[in-house]
Each structure stands twice: as structure tokens, then as C-alpha cells.
Amino acid sequence: MDKKLNTKDLINIGIFTALYFAIVFIVAFIGYIPILMVIMPALCALIGGIPFMLFLTRTKKFGMITIMGALLALLTFLLGRPWLSILFGVCAGLLADLYMKSSDYLSIKKAPMSCAVFSLWIVGMALPMYFGYRDAYMESLRPSYGDAYVEALTGLTPGWTFWALIVTIFVAGLLGGFLGTRILKKHFVKAGMA
């Protein structure tokens, strides 16, 4: 089998990335309600699992998942996240890719795990809230949004929630993977499409 990516693979990456991004994007809109902002990344990972599992049925070569991660991160970067989020996308994609490669992209048991690892690219989206960015970000909000908002946001997201965020995204990604598997079984295997 040809191990290099051909045009068909690249086109598949393109359409699945578009589908994935569109779905995550719509889910992400509920994050504009601040209380739900905390669970928004997990919800994105959960729902995003469905298209991602379908994507996995089309990946047979190394590099496809990595490129998808890089593209997603590139899009979030274009929409104004810090450039570090690209790193997250590439790394998460690469890890998920390597994990699937260990079974030659055949094992359906490994797929949910790979989905969970891949979901970690979403961490990059939430990056401005944490680490070195945190204080600067909060201070930049203060003059314009007022103290009340900043206090509320700071109260909602103490530093340790970053690790909690990673864990919740991972778990949600895993669940999303299982959800995706079930939906694939229910609809696509029957129709001979997966």
C-alpha cells in the first residue's frame, strides 16, 4: 500500500476538518454564557467525537490526524487565539496519530482513546485564561469590562482548573469517542459506509 498521502487523502482531511470545525464552532457558541464557559470545552470534545470517529474510518496513513490537528489550530489562530495554540493542535494530532499507527489504523478499540488525545487541541483555545497570559489577560479586561466581571471570571477559573480542564476534556473526548462508535455502528456500518 502506498504510504504517502495522496490527493484523495488530503481532500478527505479537508472535508472532515471542515465538518469537525463547524460542529465544534456551533457548540462553542454556548460558551459565551460565562457559567457554561467552564463546561464548554468538554462539550466540544464530546460532540466533536462523533465526526472524528467517522474521520478515523477514513485514515489509513500516518500524518492525516496530525494535519487535521494543525489545521484546526491554524483556524483558531486566525480567529485570534495566541500562536501557542498551534503547538497544542500539532502535538495533540501527532500523539493521536502515533497511537493509531501502533495498530496500523485498524483497531476500533484504540479509536476512542485516540479521540480523547486528539481532543486536547481544545486546551489551546482556553490558553489565554492561564499561565503567563492569565494576569495580563485579566488586567486587559479590567478597565473595559469592569471589576465585577473580572472578579467573577477569576473566581470561576483558579489556576488548578487548568489541570481539571485537561482531565475533563480528556474524559469528554473518551466519551465522545464511544458515542461516535455507537453512532457509527447504528447508522454507518448498516449503510456500508464505515
Partner: peptide, 18 residues
């Protein structure tokens, strides 16, 4: 490189279709 530009342009075309 093609590995980025082809998927990106496909996505670009695909959003309206979606």
C-alpha cells in the same frame, strides 16, 4: 506545502456547502 494548502482550500470551499 500541498499537505496544508489542499485541505485548507477544500475546507474553504466546503463551509458554504455544509
Amino acid at each position: 506545502p500541498d499537505a496544508i494548502s489542499i485541505p485548507l482550500s477544500v475546507m474553504f470551499r466546503f463551509f458554504p456547502t455544509l
